[in-house]
Design a protein around this nucleic acid. Structure first.
Lengths: 231, 231
DNA sequence: AAATGATTGAATCGTCCGTTTGACATTGGT
DNA sequence: ACCAATGTCAAACGGACGATTCAATCATTT
């Protein structure tokens, strides 16, 4: 699993951390290099000097966590396919392999949980314009691989239907990341934000139900107490 | 149902149409006043003259279809509650009342279907920062009303769970709008874009299944042929 | 201590932005 | 025909942007 190596301290690291924080808070287009250098108490020229250009810094921020996430997704999926050779992989485990890596990367950043997920959401939301080509390709690969796996897990669902259902699921995930905080403001009745783990668990159940809509034996999953995932 | 009145032709209308097109294509922040006036063959000063400021034009574009959509959502929901007084409103009909108004407004713009939905998706995606306060309030109201209705339709689902499931559903809808075209590039195996109507139908089924996940009598809906909605 | 290369700082470049100005053209009512 | 209101236009404004320059400073090695 490739890691993007960076100095643990120093001005370069400070710039990157500031950039991440501001990008997460205000979005990629709304942050100037002057904002970044001001927050990290560096000179305006620092970004050009250390990263070459604002654009480079931007793709570095985007790549830094996104690439490990996408690689872990593939690794997890392949592990599942190895584990269930012959048999079909349970739907919930596939979805978990898709979402879980996001939770796993959160601790590797200096950002708060809230900002980290927001940053991830913003990156995913850029799909179609503004994403570095490498990430676009990673995402395409991930979608293709997971679509194949889900098709195997749901042979009764026609290909077009399945593709759209995956589309909806991905949308739900992006929204969950980007607007986790907004959720509170819109639904004041609910109790405070639960830990991401329990939200992910809810997301997996929601998506699984949506994906297997209309399938006969509605759930081959044991209906017992929920210790299926350790969160 | 309030309408935003605008001249059917003239430079003001031309500016607005150009603005809508460009905002839909490139996003709100990526379009300059000069882009707009150039496309509509007007002078740079035209936007300031006719709309006061770029900001005003922006909120006008955002309000123009969004307000009717949100109002129609409420109207439809109230109609459903009248129709099913006493009984609980079927889940699918509530979701339809939530999504359908978007399809209804598409013909009122000069934009192609593709661009119109993209514009709507961009507006929804701005939630949290950059939306005119009036629209934020409309959305909050819509979410509250529909949450109440869905809670009645799904008494077995606990409030927190339901709120999150709605959150996921909304995310799916936004993604569907904003990245309808992206869907194709990511899943090349599928046949060409079906009409929005059939996508909406798929979305309703997906969301309904996700919302009622874990509920005992899995579907009180007739399992017969699908003439439930006329699309 | 001197020399060398890496980093910083202040100033400045050219460009694009939204908006304003003031001269000019068009229109419609009297 | 006149005038006032309305609309259009090229030009320019001040500001923010990303990037660059170049001298000053720092750290490391010799």
């Amino acid at each position: 699993m490739r890691e993007i190596t960076l100095p643990e301290s120093g001005p370069k690291r400070k710039l990157l951390d500031a950039a991440e924080q501001l990008f997460a808070e205000k979005g990629f287009e709304a942050v100037s290099v002057r904002d970044i250098t001001q927050l990290s108490k560096a000179n305006v020229a620092a970004v050009s000097y250390h990263f070459g250009s604002r654009e480079n810094l931007l793709t570095l921020v985007m790549t830094r966590y996104m690439t490990p996430v996408n690689e872990e997704r593939i690794v997890r999926l392949e592990a599942l396919e190895r584990k269930w050779t012959g048999k079909s992989v349970p739907l919930e485990e596939i979805i978990e392999a898709f979402v879980r890596p996001l939770v796993g990367q959160v601790r590797k950043s200096e950002l708060s949980e809230r900002l980290f997920y927001k940053l991830m959401g913003r990156i995913f939301g850029q799909q179609g314009d503004g994403l570095p080509p490498q990430i676009e390709e990673q995402l395409r690969n991930v979608v293709v691989r997971f679509t194949r796996a889900l098709a195997k897990a749901l042979p009764a669902v026609n290909a077009d239907d399945l593709a759209w259902r995956i589309h909806f699921m991905v949308g739900g995930m992006i929204h969950l990341l980007a607007h986790q905080d907004l959720f509170q403001r819109l639904t004041p009745g609910t109790s405070g934000t639960p830990p991401m783990e329990s939200i992910v668990s809810r997301f997996i159940r929601f998506s699984a139900a949506g994906l297997r809509e209309g399938v006969e034996a509605e759930a081959p999953t044991p209906k017992g107490p929920q210790v299926m995932f350790d969160f």
